[in-house]
Simulated assay, not measured.
Amino acid sequence: MAEAGRAPGGLAEMSLIALVLQIETAFMVCHHVARILMVVVGAALAFRRFVAAK
């Protein structure tokens, strides 16, 4: 069910999907938070590499 943790949507939607699929809500929330952190860190690194280097 790791694919469910990568589904698009906000935290509220993720919690509802977890309840419907009978998956632990904490599992879904952890995947969602990890995804958000990866995007934020990746965007910062890409900005430094491609934009700030000029």
Rank of each mutant, 00 (worst) to 15 (best):
Q22M: 09
M1G: 11
M14D: 02
E24L: 09
A4R: 00
A44R: 08
R48A: 09
S15P: 03
L11S: 09
F27W: 13
A4Y: 05
L45E: 12
R6D: 04
M28A: 14
G10Q: 01
S15D: 11
A18D: 00
A34P: 01
E24P: 05
E13I: 02
V51I: 11
E3M: 05
H31L: 14
G5A: 07
S15L: 02
A12K: 10
A43Y: 10
V51R: 04
A2D: 10
E13Y: 03
V40N: 07
A12V: 06
R49Q: 12
T25Q: 14
A2R: 09
P8V: 06
R6S: 05
H31E: 15
G5V: 06
A18K: 00
A44E: 13
H31A: 15
A46I: 04
A53Q: 08
A2Y: 06
I36Q: 15
H32P: 00
E24A: 13
E3V: 04
A7Q: 05
L37N: 09
A18M: 04
G5C: 05
V51D: 04
P8R: 10
A34W: 09
S15R: 08
H31P: 05
V39R: 15
S15M: 10
E13Q: 09
E24G: 13
C30S: 14
I23D: 02
G10K: 00
Q22R: 14
V39H: 13
L37R: 15
G10V: 04
F27K: 14
A7I: 06
A12E: 07
L21Q: 10
H32E: 10
A53Y: 01
I23Q: 06
R49D: 08
G9K: 01
A46R: 02
C30I: 14
V20I: 12
A26C: 11
L11T: 05
E3Q: 03
L45R: 09
I17K: 01
P8E: 06
F47Y: 14
M14V: 06
A53T: 07
R48C: 08
V39I: 13
F47T: 07
V29C: 11
R48Q: 13
G10S: 04
E13W: 04
L16H: 03
A46P: 00
